[in-house]
Amino acid sequence: MQSAQQLINGLMLGGILAFVAVAFTLTIGMLNFLNFTIPALFMLAAMVTWALSASGEHIFALGLPWYAAAAIGIAVAMVASLIIERFTYRYLKAHYGDATEHALPLVSSLGFLIIFEHAVITLWGSDPQRLELPFRDMDLHFAGLIVGIPHLFSLGLAITLVWVLSWLLKRSSIGRALRAIAENPDAATLMGVEVARIVPVVFLVTGMLSALAGILYGFSYSTVTPYIGDAVATDAITGMVLGGLGNVWGAIVGGLLVGLIKVFAISQFGAEIEKIPVWGLLLLILIIRPTGIFGKSRLGRGKF
């Protein structure tokens, strides 16, 4: 019974990690760019949702209903993601002759991570805040097991969204253009794909996925801080690598696996040890099988 509950807890955490892992893998798969602003977007949406829905002394304490606050949170993250696109990916197209200068977008995205995290701290401080749905009981109880409804919803939504995304990538004209860009941005430009208009779509989707994940995370664990993005992102990156860079279904499987590993490691060895299994696993995969379970080897080698 104990371990069955652990399994459920692991899958529930994994559902949220899978969400973030999909956001990471999309930008890497489409644009060959490790987007370090995803944890910032994740946190930003959750904090905005809290600030707008809670009543209190803080700035923007509007006391909005939770769904309105969440919608605005998602919108803010998507707009932020577009601003990020303007200053990061656009510079990928600058070709330099050596290795480290390809790090440009990576560096800019690290800069944005710092900006957003401290903007939120400046506005609302760094204390943990309570974020709660107005429903009385958010857990399903059956056969002695507890399943969080937001968790369940999160996992379901992640799978649905990924299914929709992969369908769109295959069928829609934007999807075809994106795959052309992923294959070769220069050739795509020559073939008449308007790279400058298509790429922001990836960033909008990234912003939306990160924001949804952040808000669901906040509701699931009832707490938000300006730092929630960091830990989740590191776990999600491990999930992404595990599933193989650029593979959306791989990201879901990887995210769920990392959730399970994390929950079991903590229950077996205690919270102090939590870093070692996840990061050790990441290091090991990168060295032994960098393509992950389902990945393509081409990605992630040249640029950052």
Partner: peptide
Amino acid sequence: RTRGVYMVLATFAF
């Protein structure tokens, strides 16, 4: 043995 993004992640994981 790792390159690019993989090396960034591997050193970070280390």
